[in-house]
Simulated assay, not measured.
Amino acid sequence: MTGQEVADRLAIHDLLARYCHAIDQHRWSDLRALFADDARVDFTAFGGPLGDADTLIAFLKPVVEGLAGSYHSTGSVICDFDGDSATVRSAAHVVMSSRGADGGEQHDHIGLWYEDELTRADTGWRFAKRTQKRAWVSTILS
């Protein structure tokens, strides 16, 4: 593995982490900056949009901001490089908490795979295409 490939892998892990934190902290302009201008998304596996990054953010914003809390994390990252492009597959665990009328919380745990096509930009690696693949869903009431 070359030094450049090590640096690229670290930068891609950083991109994936920034994606998770931007959503959970409701930093929508930071999230948008992680996508190429012409990026495409397919979040239909869980009823989300098929379209561009702005469509994704318009969908996510009211959903996430309406929650009591959320937690996104990624791992098991595999990267394949072709010059200034990369194909990346990662596992993700998402927890979304909502409050019921009785004050109790419901925690939805979602397991999914992200299949990404990335492009190297002047500002670093960016999502050119991001696709969700469903793995599992579990709900816990407390």
Rank of each mutant, 00 (worst) to 15 (best):
S76P: 03
D38R: 08
A11F: 00
T55H: 08
R120L: 14
V41I: 15
H109W: 09
D38C: 04
S90K: 00
R89Q: 10
D14T: 13
V77R: 01
P49H: 05
R120W: 01
F43C: 08
A17C: 12
S98F: 05
P49Y: 02
T123L: 03
F127N: 04
Y71D: 10
F81Y: 15
S76Q: 14
V137R: 13
S90N: 06
T55E: 11
L10H: 13
G103D: 10
C79P: 06
G111H: 05
W125A: 03
R32S: 03
W28F: 00
R9F: 01
M96D: 15
G103V: 11
Y71S: 14
I140H: 12
E115A: 12
K61L: 06
D122L: 02
A33Q: 01
D108M: 14
F81E: 06
D8V: 00
V63D: 05
A7D: 09
L112Y: 02
I78Y: 07
C79Y: 02
Q106S: 13
G83L: 08
L31F: 00
A135V: 14
D30N: 06
G66K: 01
E105F: 13
Q25P: 03
Y19V: 02
T119A: 14
L50T: 12
S138C: 08
G83Y: 11
A45Q: 00
R27F: 00
M1R: 14
T139R: 14
E117W: 05
A22E: 04
S70H: 00
Q106N: 09
G69H: 05
S138M: 12
G3H: 13
V64P: 01
G75C: 12
V77A: 04
T131M: 08
